[in-house]
């Protein structure tokens, strides 16, 4: 039920229309940053206001919402945002990726592949990929307009010169539809291939920087690289300690002050579903059956 005193999904209708117009434009020009009149939200800029405004503008009473933060459904930010929409829009919420129609995310793309009809909403801190090398907005816009993206490789060059490989591991720059250079928000580069030709619609909202951009379904997304240093994703020598998964993004958890550590899936939904299905990892096997 929508709580009394709120308009549906918190924002007023005119604001939602304005944001929808920006979203439509963003979808029409994949990767292009569309300015929009970002509103004050009941939480600070930097806590996901861009993503919340995008979600608020596209959500309907029949939608099912999932919110993740660093892959987890049960962290403060994810719980608060989920509760926010449950109160102000009265929508159903879920932790199951395939049951959601809208997934709002910070720092991860779910391991379970998204399907057609689903929408992934990213929270974006800094939308401009060229900002680190050019502080002027007028100049970065011009560089986008003229596709002057060569200097972006300088950063990758520096990585190889200093570390021997491309060490940038998150917010890894991509080229969308062969045209616009785009920052995928601080997701690990492990998730970059999931954006490529995804059947789901991907929307990016930057609240403080007042920009919205999008990747329409089935759009090509290429990560920048060098001919002799091709793009690669992270790999781990371990598997998830709980579910034994060897192909998901793993978080390293320090368990004591004597060098003890374990690796677990960052996607909590994916991990618990695998455990329900009977998969176990090293930690579970050591603890013995029946304790999971």
């Amino acid at each position: 039920m929508v709580e009394d005193g709120y308009n549906f999904a918190y924002l007023d209708e005119q604001t939602k229309r304005m944001i929808r117009r920006a979203i439509l434009k963003a979808v029409a020009i994949p990767g292009y940053q569309v300015p929009f009149g970002s509103r004050e939200m009941p939480l600070p800029f930097g806590w996901g206001t861009g993503g919340i405004q995008v979600t608020a503008s596209i959500i309907g009473p029949d939608d099912t919402l999932k919110v993740i933060d660093q892959g987890a459904d049960d962290t403060v930010n994810a719980v608060s945002i989920r509760k926010f929409f449950a109160r102000t829009a009265g929508v159903e919420t879920t932790e199951r990726t395939e049951a959601a129609t809208i997934v709002q995310t910070r720092h991860r793309i779910p391991e379970t592949p998204l399907g057609a009809g689903q929408i992934l909403v990213y929270q974006v801190p800094i939308p401009e990929p060229l900002r680190w090398l050019e502080p002027r907005e007028t100049e970065t816009r011009k560089m986008h307009a003229l596709q002057e993206y060569g200097p972006m490789h300088v950063r990758l060059y520096e990585d190889i010169a200093h570390f021997g490989h491309i060490a940038t591991s998150y917010d890894y720059p991509v080229r969308v539809n062969g045209r616009y250079l785009m920052r995928p928000s601080p997701i690990p580069k492990f998730d970059n291939p999931k954006m490529d030709r995804s059947p789901a619609l991907q929307l990016f909202g930057a609240g403080r920087e007042k920009r919205i951009y999008a990747i329409p379904p089935h759009t090509e997304v290429r990560s920048l690289d060098f001919d002799d240093h091709p793009f690669e994703v992270q790999k781990w020598a371990d598997v998830c300690a709980f579910c034994g998964s060897g192909d998901s993004f793993l978080d390293e958890i320090v368990t004591d002050d004597r060098g003890g550590r374990m690796f677990v899936c960052s996607d909590t939904d994916y991990c618990s579903r695998r455990r329900e299905a009977g998969c176990t990892g090293p930690a579970m096997q050591a603890a013995g059956p029946g304790e999971a």
């Binding site: 090398l133 002057e148 060569g150 200097p151 490789h153 300088v154 950063r155 060059y157 520096e158 190889i160 010169a161 200093h162 060098f226 001919d227 002799d228 240093h229």
Partner: peptide
Amino acid sequence: LRMGVSAGANIGERLMAVGARHYGNIR
């Protein structure tokens, strides 16, 4: 100069700007 990046990257920048994408050659 771009003061925040190495000498090699400073020289390589123009090459990358005109489309060089082979690290070994740039180096």
